[in-house]
């Protein structure tokens, strides 16, 4: 590595970084010393390790996001190259006027909130039951976690069978109980809830594992103290145990919300195409459809940016929370 070159006229070698910085002040500006002083002693020397991945991520992630933002400001459609000379927010105003976009945004939001809350509640319930020293605890834990290890493609096919109007398991059970068949996928008022149920089935196990880890971190004495203090089991969980799961809840919900935004895979596999069942269109499917089916590149980019902002809105506060607790 090249060391600071300004130290040539100095009597002793500048070894410590403090010495280098002083030299820099006396004999003119030294970028290396200034960088080191600003970002820590090995900033320049260590750059060969962190700079290449830094540049790659910068180009392919953040560069792509910025490029996408630029495209969303153009009117780029069909084949050819985008025209960057005339940038405006036309695509965003078009989105607001497009009832398909608004519906997709509302569906995305319902899925996001509904799926996350229901999955958290179910996961918490399972975790509490499993934590009560039951028999075959490991077996149950594995069974509940198993769906999570399956690909969206597999679960989508699986639930497509389950929800099948004519010979799906759910309808067979319902008709055998004397109730009428329900068109789970075809009915636009129901399909979103059916999708939410399937996703919940897949991810409740994940929430359970996160909560179980949180529960295991709470000392036994807290349960005992609460009991001796006169709390019933329900009140003990409600007032003493669950409030201590705040950290688990936050980290589980962030992951679940991101899964909800990524439900594209599930919907794509459910129908095997860009057009999800009526009533289950979300921003992700809308975005892909606009781009690759309709070649509305700029419009799809605008949808993508909207989705990106939503994600940021979820992850941002979490990162800020972690930063404040000194975890970042």
């Amino acid at each position: 590595m090249t060391r600071n070159t300004d130290t040539g006229d100095d009597s002793g070698d500048a070894v410590t970084d403090g010495g280098v910085a002083e030299d820099g002040q006396r004999s003119g500006f030294s970028p290396v010393a200034a960088l080191n002083e600003r970002f820590g002693s090995d900033f320049v020397e260590s750059s060969q390790f962190w700079l290449p991945p830094f540049l790659l991520v910068g180009l392919f992630v953040y560069g792509a996001i910025i490029w996408n933002l630029l495209i969303s400001l153009t009117d780029f459609t069909g084949f050819g190259t985008p025209d960057y000379s005339d940038l405006d927010l036309q695509m965003y105003s078009r989105a607001l006027a497009d009832s398909g976009f608004v519906d997709a945004a509302i569906n995305t939001f319902i899925l996001l909130v509904g799926f996350t809350l229901v999955t958290l509640a179910l996961g918490l319930g399972l975790a509490i039951l499993i934590d009560r020293n039951i028999r075959f605890e490991n077996t149950f834990r594995t069974i509940y976690l198993l769906p999570m290890s399956l690909s969206f493609v597999v679960t989508a096919q699986f639930w497509a069978w389950m929800f099948n109007f004519n010979n799906g398991v759910i309808n067979i059970v319902i008709t055998s109980l004397g109730l009428g068949r329900v068109d789970w996928i075809g009915n636009p008022d129901i399909v979103l809830w059916a999708v939410m149920f399937a996703l919940m089935w897949q991810f409740a196990g994940y929430a359970m594992v996160v909560f179980l880890a949180g529960l295991r971190a709470i000392p036994n004495e807290h349960y005992e103290a609460a009991k001796v203090d006169g709390a019933s089991t329900v009140r003990m969980y409600w007032r003493v145990i669950i409030p201590q799961l705040k950290g688990s809840t936050i980290s589980a919900s962030v992951v679940l919300m991101v899964f909800a935004l990524k439900a594209f895979d599930f919907l794509y596999s459910l129908v095997g195409g860009y057009r999800p069942p009526n009533g289950a269109d979300i921003l992700a499917t809308k975005m892909v459809r606009e781009a690759y089916a309709n070649l509305n590149w700029a419009y799809a980019s605008a949808v993508a940016i909207t989705l990106f902002v939503m994600t940021l809105g979820i992850v941002g506060p979490y990162l800020y929370y972690q930063y404040n607790r000194g975890n970042l």
């Binding site: 807290h222 103290a225 001796v228 203090d229 006169g230 201590q244 705040k246």
Partner: peptide
Amino acid sequence: PQHRDIAMVFQSYALYPHMTVEENMAF
């Protein structure tokens, strides 16, 4: 235990970390 008229002090104190001292005592 909740219906025995007892109070217990634990070796680890077992104070509820999310509650203030006052809430701990009031619980």
